[in-house]
Every structure is written in structure tokens, then in C-alpha cells.
Design a protein around this nucleic acid. Structure first.
Lengths: 338, 338
DNA sequence: TTGTATGCGTTATCAT
DNA sequence: ATGATAACGCATACAA
């Protein structure tokens, strides 16, 4: 059905080599030849078959983006930037979801049928990363948002300790003193929440304060639901906080709703801040104070690092730190949006 | 590097045909043979090369999902279900974004280099669909959410007229009489907004009412921003509404914020309802009344129809109508969430 | 500058 | 039941 190199060659009365040269924009082709071949190409509506090309070259031009769930706002915003950056670099992006299934995460990492298609993978770890230790994924791999692991993989992430420190310092600067946090993970081997707790604790210590263990609540899935329940528990607890630092914006959205449902008010009674800067927070009521991550930066550098490693597999592992910015809004008492 | 059929065959001392049979789980293979080959496979860690397989079979196992922007909540929720459904049916999903660029939409539809990879495409039209008329995409195509076009393509969508009617009827049932709508498109050839306006108008007519043209506002991108500005304009207008029907939840989120920013209240002064049932609406304050679309249903049927057409290209075009449900919440005065 | 011929790793068509 | 071998469509080493 679809025209092939051979069809074009036949029609133009030349060899397939010549046609291939024209298609590939090879330097040494006479303009006469080029025009003739091009006409045959146009007449037949010829399109190179990418699969054949890829079998031959060994490249698929496909990147995998593995996230827990694509409909979590942070991941969909990140996906948007990754697809944009990859497209510019000549790659397609296939999205895979691990759900909250650690076994599935493991399968996606090893050489399953699926992953053999990829030239490389951008991986947003689920809850832990130990699954990766000693594993050979069979293709270049970039970790997004998680640093641990043996040093075999490139990674791109913000400085989580500093980001958490900044968020906490902001709450303290408002005069709040009874701080709580939401977002630790039962899984001790997941680095991000540990780092955020460390930043939280350090900022408190710098102000001569400390948080009781029960003021730092776990959240399994970083969902609005999790945030809601954790905040409700804090409010119902012995020492209700006057400010809550949530380890994600989604947790914060749930927490804010819980505050109001308990008859209290944000930010008057309890100030709330998150991390991620998802779009939802800008128009929420109150608008959500947060730490903004530069997802475009993360995507650009992740794709660049991956592309480099695809070309040169034994490059030393890169460790890119992405910038972050404190964005105070109404949920910590900063008044109207622009 | 990676082991091939030939390597396995050599090691097991058989022909590649036999190995292929074992891999493909072909019926007629002696168990002795099978065991011997399997051992060789395991020892070499052989994995079939999907690219070669696909060159041979002509199938890529890849579906394209084309959406305007993956970080729009409705699309990311839909993508989640599509990826799930496709995975079950043995397909991978590549996500492509048209942005708001109509030229890019057109490119993605015709046989560009990119699209030749796909066995089929699930297409969420941007703003218009006339770009498709007379176009041969070169692969099966399913339209999501848009019905128009010549009848060559399958499509899956809700009954937009009825959904809009239901939403409007709900507002009327609250006793509201000064209704407005947000979400028409300058582009007359985009069907969905036209249908929703029709449902809106019909419901009003059934109550002996009619909406002045300036009470039905356009929204270019269905963003929170668009909703905010349209609602602000309505409130500042000569005849401020007591209820607003937004053609998407995102518009509604922006509209609600605009109401409060103008010193009024939802639902007391103005009731607001959207369409889509995005997660954000459940925890928003007030929680958002909406018309829920069954995205799992849409994804399941879209993937099924696509898979069927990939197998049998000249199937008659299907037209699947997905169910919708009215979900009243606080933004139209229905009290607390469960 | 252009043509010929080989192989990428599979599946499928012949045989045996 | 299994073996030999021809495509699938392209890129490229080698020849001319």
C-alpha cells in the first residue's frame, strides 16, 4: 500500500541508494537528480517507514516517561514540558503509569517487552528506589526527583532540603510558632520526604523550635484525600497547629478544605503552604502559597542528559539541581493576586 | 549485544524457526524441544526485538493520543484511562500535544513522520475539525468528543445537548432565572460548544425563558483564566446572572474565583455548574457541581473501536454515546460532601 | 555522483 | 514437528 524506497526509485528511474540520499538530504546529490527524485516522491506520496529505519539504525526515537499517575497535576504539568522538550530533540514520548504498584514499577525498569522499545527512560520513582539498586534497565535512565541509588544514573531534582527550609521559614516569618508538616512516607527508603522533613526540622531549629513527632504526619499517596485526613487529624489533636507545611500542593488543597470543614479559617487560624506550584493553586480560594519548581528547566535538562547518554553511554552520571522559588499567596496571608 | 533468535538457535542446536515457535507459544512443539530451547533463552537472557517484530508484522503496537494540552485536568484524567485501557489491549500510548496551534493539529493528522509509527490514533480535536474533511490520516482514527465530519471516522462522546440541558435544568430547579453561560467558541465549526449552547437554550425555553446573546460568553481556551474573565464581565454587565453554566469545570473554577473577587458569593448570589467532573472540583471551596463524564467508559470504547478498526479497516464507522451524570455539589447549594 | 548488495531480527512460506 | 530461506523497508559499505 504505502510507497517504499523501491517504488520511488523505479518511478524516478534511479537506484534506491539515490532516493535514500535525497530523503536523507545527503550532501552530494546533483540538483537535477534531486529534483527528479523529489517529484517521484511527491507523486507517490512517499513517506519513509520509521520502523524499518529504526531496525536498521538501532534507534527508536522513543523516550519512555514513567510516572505513578499521569492525572496527578504535578506529573501532567511535568509531562507537558517533557513532551515539548523531547519533541524539540526529535523524540517521541510514551507515557507509562506505575499506579501505586511497586511490582509494576520494577517490571517497567527491567527489560520487559515494553521497555525494549525505548532509547531511554525518564523515571519518576514511586515510593522507593531500592528496586533499582543493581538493576540493569538495558537503556539509559534518568531519575526525576530522587537522588539516592548507586551513582549509576543521571538525576534532575530540586534541592529538597532547601525548598522545605524556605517554605518553613516563610511560615515562621508570619509569626506562626505551632508548625506541623504533612507528607512523610512509611517507606524509609524514599528520599524526597526525608529531605523535606530535614529542611522543616532545620528551619524550626534555626528559630529555636522543634516539632513533636505527632505533628509530622504521613501521607501515602500525596493525594487531596491524604491531605484532608492528615490535616483533620492534626486539628483534632492535642496541639492544633497554626501553620501546616505540606510536601505537595495536592496535599495542601486537601488540608485547606479540612481546615474550613472544621470551622476554622485559612490563613487566619492556620496558614498552609505546599510545594510544586500546580495551576490549581493559583485560582483556588484561598490561593495557595507554594514553592514553585521549574518544570521546564527539569524537563529540558532531563531530556538533554538522556539524549547525551543515548549518544555516549559511558558518560559520567550527571546530577542536575533545578531551581525553586517561594511563591507566597493568600493561604499564608499574602493578599490579592495580580 | 542483545541476544537474537539466531544466537538462541545456535546455542540450543536448533533452527531459528523452532526458537520462534517456542517464543510465540506455537501449538506444535514437543515439550522436550520446548524445554531445551527455553533453557537457551534463559541462559542468554533473550528478549524478542519489538522493532524487528513490528517491521515484519506491519504493526507497531503503538497508539497515538493527541490532545491540546496534557496538563489540562480533563485530558490528563482521560489519558490515564486511555493508557490503562490500551495497556490491557496490548498497546503503548504516545502522547502528542497540539497546543493551540491548528497547523500542528493538521500535521499530526496527516501522514507525518511521527504518525506513521501509530497503528491508530485517538484524537481530541482542538477547536475545529474541518481540517479533517477529505484528509486521509493513513491510519485508523477515533474522534473523542466531536461528532461532525464526514462519517468516515469512529467517534465516542457524550450527548452534549442533553448534558447541557441537564446542567441548565438543575440551575432552574434551584429557582434561578437569570442564567448565563460561558464557553462558546469564535470558531463556528466546532461542534461541542454549539451543542452545549443548544442544550442550554432548550432548557431555558422549556421553562419559558431565553438568554440574551451577551449572557452567553465565549472562552477561547477553556482555561481557568478564560472563566475568570468571562464571569467578571458578566458580573460587571447590565444584567448580572444568578447562575452560570460553564462548558467545562476549569472555566467554572475560574468563574467561581471571579465571583468571590467581586465581593459576591457562590452559591448564594450566583450558582455555578461545570462539565467534566475533574478531581479538583471535589475538594474545591465550594465544591463544584458538575456533569460527570465516564472517562473510563470513553477510553474503553475508544480503544476497543480503534483495535477493531486496526484489525478490520473497512468496518462501518461507529458512533458511541458515553453516559453522563449530574453531580450536584456546594456550588449550586447542595451541602456537605460525604 | 550514483548503483549493487548485504544485513538489521523477525515472521511466515515453503519444504521435509 | 522442524529446518532452510525469503521477505519486511531502510541505511550503508563497497564498487563503479
Amino acid at each position: 500500500m504505502a510507497a517504499t524506497l523501491r517504488d520511488v526509485a523505479e518511478r524516478a528511474g534511479v537506484s534506491i541508494r539515490t532516493v535514500s540520499n535525497v530523503v536523507a538530504d545527503y550532501a552530494h546529490v546533483s540538483s537535477t537528480m534531486k529534483a527528479r527524485v523529489q517529484r517521484a516522491i511527491d507523486e507517490l506520496g512517499y513517506r519513509p517507514n520509521p520502523v524499518a529505519r529504526r531496525l536498521r539504525t538501532g534507534r527508536t526515537g522513543l523516550l519512555g516517561l514513567v510516572v505513578p499517575e499521569i492525572d496527578v497535576p504535578y506529573f501532567s504539568q511535568l509531562a507537558r514540558e517533557v513532551i515539548r522538550a523531547a519533541s524539540l530533540a526529535g523524540f517521541h514520548v510514551m507515557v507509562d503509569q506505575t499506579g501505586h504498584d511497586r511490582g509494576r514499577q520494577r517490571d517497567l525498569l527491567r527489560g520487559s517487552d515494553r521497555t525494549l522499545l525505548f532509547d531511554g527512560v525518564l523515571f519518576c520513582p514511586l515510593a522507593t528506589a531500592d528496586d533499582l539498586v543493581g538493576v540493569d534497565p538495558g537503556h539509559p535512565l534518568i531519575l526525576l526527583g530522587e537522588h539516592k541509588f548507586d551513582g549509576r544514573f543521571d538525576h534532575v531534582a530540586i534541592d529538597n532540603v532547601q525548598a522545605a527550609f524556605d517554605a518553613t521559614a516563610h511560615l515562621l516569618s508570619l509569626g506562626r510558632r505551632r508548625l506541623a508538616a504533612i507528607g512523610t512516607q512509611p517507606d524509609e527508603d524514599f528520599e524526597t520526604p526525608l529531605q523535606r522533613t530535614e529542611g522543616f526540622t532545620r528551619a524550626l531549629a534555626a528559630a529555636g523550635l522543634a516539632a513533636a513527632p505527632e505533628q509530622v504526619r504521613p501521607a501515602a499517596h500525596y493525594s487531596r484525600q491524604d491531605g484532608y485526613h492528615a490535616a483533620a487529624a492534626l486539628i483534632a489533636g492535642v496541639d492544633p497547629p497554626d501553620a501546616i507545611f505540606c510536601y505537595s500542593d495536592l496535599l495542601a488543597m486537601g488540608a485547606i478544605r479540612a481546615v474550613f470543614d472544621s470551622g476554622l479559617s485559612v490563613p487566619e487560624d492556620i496558614a498552609v503552604i505546599g510545594i510544586d506550584d500546580i495551576d490549581e493553586g493559583r485560582f483556588a480560594r484561598p490561593s495557595l502559597s507554594t514553592v514553585s519548581l521549574d518544570t521546564a528547566f527539569i524537563a529540558d535538562h532531563a531530556v538533554a542528559a538522556l539524549a547525551a547518554r543515548i549518544d555516549t553511554p559511558d558518560l559520567p552520571a550527571r546530577d542536575v539541581v533545578a531551581p525553586h522559588t517561594l511563591v507566597p499567596r493568600e493561604s499564608t496571608g499574602v493578599q490579592p493576586r495580580a
